[in-house]
Every structure is written in C-alpha cells, then in structure tokens.
Amino acid sequence: MEEVIVRAESPEDVKAIDVVNLSAFEGDAEAQLVDAVRRSPDFIRDLSLVAEINGRIVGHLLLSKAALEGEGGRKSVLVLGPMSVVPSQSHRGIGVALMQAAVNRARDMRYTAIVIAGRPDYYERFGFKPGSEFSISTNLPVPEDAVTAMELVSGALAGGGRVVYPAVFEAIY
C-alpha cells in the first residue's frame, strides 16, 4: 500500500482541495465552507491539512478557531470541519492519518481543545468524548449527541459552555 503523506495545505493546493470536497460530499457547501474559512480570521494554515498518495491530494481536514463561552468567560478552542476523503480512496487509512496529524499538530501548537459537530461514532475512536461529558453545546442546529470534544490540555473544557462556531459554518447547517 502506498504511503499517506499529511502536510499543511499550500496556496497551490486550493483547487485540489475543492475537488476532494466536491467528490466527497453531495453539492458544494463544504467546498464553499473551506473557502470562506480560508478567507476569515479563524483560518490557521498549519491546521488545514491535506493527505497525499503518490503526489495526488486525496484528503483534506480543516481545524479553525472558535470560542467557548461559559461561566468562566470566553476561551479559544478549535473546531473540525469539514474532513473529506476522495470516495475511491476510502478505507485506506487516509482519514486516520489526517485525524492523528491534526490532533498532534494542534497539541504541538498549544491549542487546548477540539470540538466536532457530526459523526460521533467515527470521532470517538480517536479519543473524542461526547460533548455532554464536558457540558458543552454549540450554536449549530445539530443534535446534542452529535457533538464530541477532546481536551488537548487537561481541564481546558472544565465548566462547559457553548461553542460558538464562526458564522460561515451556519450556511451549511
């Protein structure tokens, strides 16, 4: 099996990332979301990751900044979305490689937590826990049990609160 290489996106990757998102999802909402986040102050180039096999981009994962608003005030957290893999390349460990790299990079960059809205059955295998365990919710119209989170720093989500995704996310939910 070919090696999966994960790296930060470069400006030359934009069109290939669009193709990955368009092939992985029905419609262009996710591709538009990535573009909108890329143009926002919440974008972190080092946390917009691509997966390559034989020099071809076959996956993409985006972590961006959001706020956790709770009784203790406002804290910065990361939110994941979207993550995509070219359908013909699924079941090759691409999503796993992207997730592991994203968590490791976020931790190395000293971010404190990652929150995800969607597919808890998938993300819990990477160590994400139900958002209810941290008493967190989001501003997105998703079921409570769709929210998962991971503390990169112990106690980062203590006290819970509401994760406020950037406005660009509301367009796809």
Rank of each mutant, 00 (worst) to 15 (best):
Y165T: 03
A167P: 02
V37M: 02
G159Y: 07
M109I: 12
S135V: 10
F169E: 03
A167Q: 15
R162S: 14
R74Y: 07
V19I: 12
L152K: 10
V79H: 03
G93E: 10
R105C: 07
R38K: 12
P141D: 15
G55P: 05
R107A: 13
E26M: 09
L33D: 02
G55W: 11
D35M: 05
M99I: 10
R125M: 10
G118N: 07
A149F: 04
I17A: 00
I172P: 02
L78N: 03
A66G: 06
D108N: 15
A24R: 06
I44W: 04
P120K: 11
L63K: 08
R107H: 13
L152Q: 11
E124D: 12
Y122G: 07
V34Y: 00
L62I: 08
R105I: 11
E3D: 12
V168F: 10
R56E: 09
K15L: 01
L22G: 01
I136D: 00
N104D: 12
L61H: 06
T138Y: 06
F134Q: 06
E2T: 15
F25K: 05
L68D: 03
V19W: 02
I5G: 01
P82D: 07
F43G: 03
P166D: 06
F128W: 07
S84Q: 09
S154Y: 10
I5V: 15
A102I: 06
K129F: 09
D18F: 00
Y111D: 08
L98V: 09
E71V: 15
G155D: 07
V14Y: 00
E170D: 14
S23E: 13
V86F: 01
L80E: 09
P41N: 11
V77C: 04
L22D: 03
E69I: 14
E144P: 05
I172V: 15
V153R: 15
I172M: 08
G160Y: 05
A156G: 08
V50Q: 01
A158Y: 09
K65I: 07
F169I: 03
V168D: 01
I57K: 00
T138W: 05
G27F: 06
A106C: 10
A66E: 00
S90E: 15
V115K: 00
S40P: 03
I57E: 00
P41E: 14
V19P: 00
N21K: 04
P130W: 08
E151C: 13
G127T: 08
S88P: 08
V14R: 01
A171T: 11
G27S: 10
N21E: 08
L68I: 12
N21Y: 01
H60K: 09
A67D: 14
Y122D: 09
M1Y: 10
A171M: 12
G73K: 11
P141N: 11
F43V: 09
M109S: 10
L68H: 04
M99Y: 07
V58G: 01
S40Y: 06
R39H: 14
A117K: 06
I136F: 01
A146T: 14
L47S: 03
V58M: 03
Y122M: 11
S90H: 13
S88I: 12
F126L: 11
G161N: 05
G72A: 14
V115G: 00
G160V: 14
G59S: 10
A146E: 07
F128K: 02
F126S: 06
L22H: 04
S137G: 14
E124A: 12
I116T: 04
R38A: 01
E2K: 13
